[in-house]
Nucleic acid binder design. Structure first.
Lengths: 160, 160
DNA sequence: CCAGTGTATGTTATATCATAACAAGTCAAG
DNA sequence: CTTGACTTGTTATGATATAACATACACTGG
């Protein structure tokens, strides 16, 4: 976990497939049920390879014969986040597939303001700095949200 | 900017007053108009000394004869955030007065999940770590959101 | 002074994001 | 084959946020 695949050229079908395979393995190993709806939501997130709103995901589900009410999407998304298969991007009120399921990580998100791509950067050093700052005032950090808005390599070049 | 006043005992009227005075000075210096609505919103945030939702602020405004529609609150809050007099806390969909107006800072927020107090911690080291991680993949960080959810000193003791 | 311009405020309406509560279906263990 | 845990579906509503337009205010140049 030391690069940000979303910003590189890559065989996306392949990368999505491998993430999906790892998620399957993890789910089996932990007794989590990756049901059709949940599986499909994860696939949709992987296909999009970007942060997607719950209602956007819901539209996809509805078009494929799943339920068409918000809780259907929110429940599947909440499950995926809880299981570590997806992340919630607070800044966008949106969700993105985790590209490193199973690997312990404290992700920092890099959000391109032009193309909306979202990449996970190694967040451990960031988290360490945050823990240190918090410890200075006696605060105990349980969960951290680290999100950067800016320009990805491609859009930076285009903008220049 | 090297502590988190929200978690300490302090003369709050005094601290709010001094922040307000600094905001006034800054606004004058920069030609920003700290109008009655905007001023009152900042006062409300300072009085609460915690993150407040836009509609909570709006209720206060409405009770005092200002407009009672959402845009009134959102516009004032957006102005304060833009001017650096307040911060938006993404995690809570809420706003908090900036306790260090005018000082350059990259705040990291410490949010107590029990008492909802919000403090600003020194975020420069965190930001530096984030910039480094982003630079590794060619991403340029323009704005960063760093928010930690956990326990403040007081609630940690109570919980123990 | 006062007309013109830009900014701020107020209001109506609506868009967007999210969850509570309950009903019905699925499936495996006993 | 029934019970219990979980998942999915649906209805309804709550919470957060903004678009669009009208009105009021305040400064500036004539």
């Amino acid at each position: 976990m030391n690069d940000a695949p979303a910003f590189h050229e890559h065989d996306h079908a392949d990368c999505a497939g491998s993430v999906m395979a790892r998620a399957d393995a993890m789910a089996s190993a932990q007794g989590l049920r990756l049901t059709p709806v949940r599986r499909r939501v994860l696939e949709v997130l992987l296909e999009g390879h970007r942060a997607m709103g719950a209602y956007e995901v819901l539209d996809r589900l509805a078009a494929e014969g799943f339920g068409n009410q918000p809780p259907v999407a929110y429940r599947a998304l909440d499950f995926l986040v809880e299981a570590g298969f997806a992340h919630r991007i607070q800044r966008l009120n949106a969700f993105a597939a985790c590209m490193h399921p199973g690997e312990a990580h404290a992700p920092a998100f890099l959000i391109c303001r032009l193309c909306d791509a979202v990449a996970e950067a190694p967040g451990a050093p960031v988290r360490a700095a945050l823990d240190a700052a918090a410890a200075g005032v006696g605060f105990v950090v349980e969960r951290a949200t680290v999100e950067a808005l800016g320009l990805c390599p491609g859009c930076r070049d285009v903008a220049a």
